[in-house]
């Protein structure tokens, strides 16, 4: 590739000259990068090894970056556009509709009966996860960490639900409630067994109970791993000072594992609008209004061919949820870091 310099002093403002100089600059850049000998003169500072390294990096990164660009950046940008479009079922095409989808979503929030339940249930699920499940995960891990009686058995049984599919645990739980519980009532002559899963007054409470039971072990391996990483010297020194296990938990273990607890809490916040509480696994698309959560409502909107016309409204809802969730999550993260800075050990 030759790189003949355009005549100096020519007028660079014309389009033709601009193109000429542009091509010249590109050629220079190419020669400097690739390092080809031109007219017997080496012009590049880049070695052959460096070129191979660049080619290797390009080959290694090309596929993951393309997937990321298309299915993360592309999808999210498209999601924003989709929120301002409407679907024409007759032509199967989307057209711009301004803020119509947002208006429709707000109208639905005021008019639909399930929305009140969705707010309430989503908050209940979040509170149960944060106030009941999370403390149990940590306490269970500490019990096992201190090698108390049966800790190995408990470790296995607490970890077991996290490797089983939710559809397996739901099937076991649901079928026992529907077919096994009446058997127990009959055995102990307690009368007729309640229909806990389908009764509107008990259904959501049963789902919460299931969620507590199946998540009881939760992240035991994660927290146990963290506790095992704490240098024994710290605990030995505290033990020589006569620290009790309860104080050890409050003053040493908890502060040291707090950075991970804070990530856990932030994840809970980030997933606030997405939590379903296994409603779809229990009921499919037929859950009663009383059991609705935002995550469930959102999920069933877009399923299958019937969901295609609802994509724009669902995208608008998603955009609104994101606008609420992002600042809350980032503020929580900032607050957590202020409250308890991470400690390296």
């Amino acid at each position: 590739m030759s790189r003949k310099e355009p005549k100096k002093g020519t007028d660079r403002s014309s389009l033709r000259e601009k193109v000429k100089w542009g091509i010249y600059d590109l050629k220079c850049a190419f020669h400097n990068k690739v390092g080809v000998r031109l007219h017997g003169k080496k012009t590049s500072t880049m070695t052959k090894a460096r070129v191979y390294e660049k080619l290797f990096l390009a080959a290694v990164l090309a596929f993951p970056l393309t997937i990321f660009c298309v299915f993360y950046i592309g999808v999210n940008i498209n999601s924003i556009f989709l929120a301002f479009k409407e679907y024409d079922s007759a032509t199967g095409k989307y057209f711009w509709s301004g803020f119509g989808n947002f208006k429709q979503f707000f109208e639905m929030m005021n008019s639909e009966a399930f929305m009140g339940y969705a707010w309430k249930n989503t908050f209940i699920l979040f509170a149960v996860n944060l106030i009941i499940n999370l403390p149990f995960h940590i306490i269970n891990a500490y019990y096992v960490y201190k090698k108390n009686p049966l800790s190995k058995t408990f470790r296995f049984l607490l970890f077991l639900p996290s490797i089983l599919s939710s559809v397996i645990t739901v099937t076991m739980f649901k079928y026992f409630m529907v077919y096994g519980l009446p058997g127990i009532y009959k055995l102990f002559k307690l009368g007729e067994a309640p229909n806990l899963i389908y009764d509107p007054s008990t259904g959501f409470a049963t789902i919460i109970g299931y969620s507590f039971w199946v998540n009881f072990g939760g992240s035991i391996i994660l927290f146990l791993g963290l506790m095992n990483r704490i240098p024994p010297d710290i605990l030995e020194a505290a033990s020589l000072d006569g620290i009790t296990p309860v104080k050890e938990f409050w003053h040493i273990i908890l502060p040291l594992i707090f950075p991970t607890i804070s990530i856990y809490i932030i994840n809970l916040l980030a997933g606030f609008f997405a939590q379903q509480g296994s409603l779809y696994t229990f009921y499919g698309t037929d859950a009663r209004n009383e059991f609705y959560t935002f995550g469930y409502y959102y999920y069933i909107q877009v399923l299958g061919e019937a969901g295609v016309p609802k994509y724009p409204v669902a995208s608008a809802a998603g955009l609104l949820f994101t606008v609420v969730t992002v600042p809350v999550t980032l503020f929580a993260r900032w607050g957590m870091n202020k409250l308890c800075p991470s400690v390296d050990y």
Binding site: L61, F68, V70, F71, Y72, G74, V75, N76, N78, S79, L82, I266, L269, A270, G271, F273, A274, Y298, Y299, V302, G307, V308, K310, Y311, P312, A314, S315, A317, G318, L319, F321, T322, T325, V326, T329, L330, R333
Partner: peptide, 27 residues
Amino acid sequence: LAPVLYTVNIIVMIVPIVGRLPSELQL
């Protein structure tokens, strides 16, 4: 790109984006 990719990953992990599903399905 190395520090950029690392930072992008952290941003993706900490910024929660709700409601990508319709867009993903459309694409």
